[in-house]
Amino acid sequence: MRWLGILGLVALSECIVIIPLMKMSTMQKTLKGKNLMNSFLEEHAYSLSQHSANDQKFSTHPLSNFKNIFYFGNISIGTPPQQFRVLFDTGSSDLWVSSVFCLDPGCGKHRLFNPRGSTTFQMTDRHMYFCNELGQIVGFFGRDIVQIGDLVIMNQTFALTYRQASKILPLLPFEGVLGLGYPSLATTGIIPVFDSLMLQKVISEPVFAFYLNNKKGYGSVVMLGGVDHSYYKGDLNWVPVPKCRYWQITVDRISVNGKVIGCSSRCQATLDTGTAFVHGPIRLITNIQRLIGARPYHGYQYSSISCRGSIGIPRVVFTINGIDYPMRTEDYIVSITSSLCFSAFLGGTEKVSKSETWILGDAFLKQYFLVFDRRNNRIGLAHAV
């Protein structure tokens, strides 16, 4: 998952400071005597069932749209349930929320989980540390009941933050992240939410899907355990995921006006609902910015572009498994104010890999209906209605 520094035009540097992880004596005293679960659920075979509209093991969960940049929904944790807004993120695998033990500005303006307010909370001796574009996030893991719509997970391990060193979090309308990546991307030994849904047989099918509506502030959904076919037209184009870590696929080529400008020998791209923009190698992104008329903005990594666009601005076409998926002008213009807009293309993936790699965020994904199939390790794409 890659996070935006564009809110408030704040540029975050890479995290280089290591924060020591310490046990919290306050939590230990508060929760002393709580019994910890002896072991995690062991992996076992699951049977699949056909999805139907009345299937109780299938949930279509509404998502809110924040400035066409973030898509988030409500979940609840604990007994009685405490509600939180979380980003459903295919680029990470852990679940974390802000807690009452966090005193940083990124926590104070949001809902905070209080473990003492839940009769089913269980503490663990595991600690959590994340460092990314969002900032430095430190916490500890606990277990509790997690509910997503009508789907209920028992003894789900999740992280409670007690340090959020970030200039971005206070500006965001959600309190945490629910990762939907593969287990190999999760903190070692932690079972992700979707794997718990499968292991506990809460869902019928090991698939989830996204419909990200960019036309209104509402109407977007994430589907867990099945697919509602009314959200797309035509057929799903199935693309294999070669390595079970990120939701990564092979792109045939990237072109503008029929001319190949990227992936000339095919390349890898991650489909990431936790990223707003499209990230690629700097040299190729610079070329795309020139072709669409975007210009560097006062030393920031973002490039400004006309909010109205202009006649003749070309589409940027991603060809995947032989099918063209174009980004139109309205897809790659991100409005900050009525007179300030940015291009939805960002450079910088060379730091991650020497090969040509891309991250396709919501600017690309919101045009299409997406199905993530864990059983067959593949992603289905179709044109959204």
Rank of each mutant, 00 (worst) to 15 (best):
C15H: 00
E175I: 00
G8V: 06
T319E: 01
V138S: 01
T187W: 03
A344I: 07
L284R: 14
L21W: 08
T270H: 05
K67G: 00
W358E: 08
S93N: 00
S196P: 05
T187R: 11
S230Q: 11
T286C: 02
D324K: 02
Y71S: 09
H383D: 13
G322N: 02
T90D: 00
V352C: 09
Y129K: 10
I359D: 09
D104C: 04
K57Q: 14
V260N: 06
I19G: 04
Q147K: 14
F70T: 07
V177H: 13
K23S: 13
W3D: 11
I190R: 05
I288V: 14
V146Q: 14
G73F: 04
L172T: 03
V222E: 03
G149N: 05
A159N: 10
R253N: 05
F141R: 05
D55N: 14
G293R: 00
E356V: 05
N74T: 15
L172S: 03
N237E: 07
Q56Y: 09
I261A: 00
P80Q: 10
F141H: 09
R283I: 12
H61L: 12
I288W: 01
H61V: 05
L112I: 11
H44M: 06
N54S: 14
V193N: 03
M154A: 12
V17T: 13
P105K: 09
G299K: 02
L112M: 15
H279I: 13
L103T: 15
S255W: 08
V371G: 04
V138E: 12
Q147V: 12
T187Q: 12
S264W: 05
I69M: 14
H279W: 15
A186D: 12
S355H: 15
S25T: 03
I320E: 08
E356F: 00
Q156Y: 03
M198N: 06
F121P: 11
S310I: 00
G117S: 14
L103W: 08
L271S: 06
I191K: 06
A344E: 01
F66Y: 15
K243G: 10
D362H: 00
F140D: 10
S265L: 13
T161Y: 04
K259H: 02
L87I: 11
N321C: 07
S196H: 00
S353K: 02
S52T: 15
S264Y: 01
S204F: 05
M198G: 00
F174D: 07
G176V: 02
K109M: 12
Y218V: 10
V278I: 15
R295I: 12
D228C: 08
S47G: 15
M154D: 05
D94W: 07
L236F: 07
G274P: 09
S255T: 01
F174V: 10
S255K: 03
L180A: 10
G309E: 08
G312S: 05
I168D: 13
F84N: 04
A159I: 01
I320D: 06
D324W: 06
I145G: 08
G106Y: 06
S52V: 10
V251I: 14
V100F: 04
P20A: 11
F158W: 01
S39G: 08
T157P: 00
A384V: 01
